[in-house]
Simulated assay, not measured.
Amino acid sequence: MKPLKEFVIPFIGLKIGTHLFEYKVGQAFFEYFEYDDFNDVNVDICVNLVKKVALLELQFKMSGIVNVNCDLTNEPFNQVIEDEFNLVVKFGEAYDDENTDILILPHGAYELNIQQYVYELIVLSVPIKRVHPGVEDGTLNSDILEKLEELSPKLEDKKETIEDIDPRWNTLKKLLTGK
């Protein structure tokens, strides 16, 4: 997979100190990764890179909305997401990304590709269970919700269920409750 040019940071020419990089991520970014769980994406990413003599510190801050389908009704809605992530980049003999917080680049590296970190930050900040806000507050009118309500088991009057119970169980219940 060829890296996206806009997410490659050439840190070799940067002075020691703090540098700010801002990105706007849209649906085309996720089409590149062939990820189709989102209907639409509008996310702002702010990367604060602190260059030191022997390492780089990156702080990712992300906020925006992703349009996803509700797990219950399949109705699309805008899910607000917000998250942060810190990454330390060190230099060593070979490339190593085994640790999630530390990236080791080989000596002589001159650029850093952050597209995978941006992708994972956005995907992992979306809740696992996606429920439309209208379902939670009862304002969403949907054919699927009506059908679920129609097919849900109805609770009957408690007196009828107590009378239908085998009398032997009632005797055992007296032992538990002491009545």
Rank of each mutant, 00 (worst) to 15 (best):
T161S: 11
D36I: 09
E98F: 10
I16K: 15
K52I: 07
I165Q: 09
G134W: 01
V89A: 02
D166E: 09
Y23A: 05
D97I: 05
Y23T: 01
G92V: 03
E93A: 11
D96L: 02
C46N: 12
I144T: 13
Q116G: 01
L175S: 10
Q27N: 11
S152K: 12
C46K: 15
E31F: 03
T73Y: 07
L56H: 06
N69Q: 10
D71G: 07
I45H: 04
F33N: 01
F21V: 06
Y35R: 05
T100G: 10
L121Y: 02
G64P: 06
D164R: 13
L140R: 01
D44M: 08
V89K: 00
K158I: 13
D44I: 04
E111T: 11
K5N: 14
G17E: 01
T171N: 12
N78I: 01
Q59K: 14
N74I: 13
L172P: 03
I65Q: 04
L145A: 08
L72Y: 09
N48I: 13
F11D: 05
M62H: 06
D157W: 01
A54K: 15
E34W: 00
K174V: 09
I12W: 10
D83F: 12
L4S: 09
Y35M: 03
P153Q: 07
A54E: 15
M62F: 06
D97P: 03
F30L: 03
V8W: 03
D166S: 00
V50A: 04
D137L: 00
A109E: 12
S63N: 15
F29Q: 08
V41L: 04
T171F: 04
P133Y: 02
L176W: 11
T100R: 14
D44H: 11
T100E: 15
V135H: 05
E98T: 15
T177V: 06
L87E: 04
K5L: 10
E163L: 12
F29H: 05
L58A: 08
K179A: 07
V131W: 00
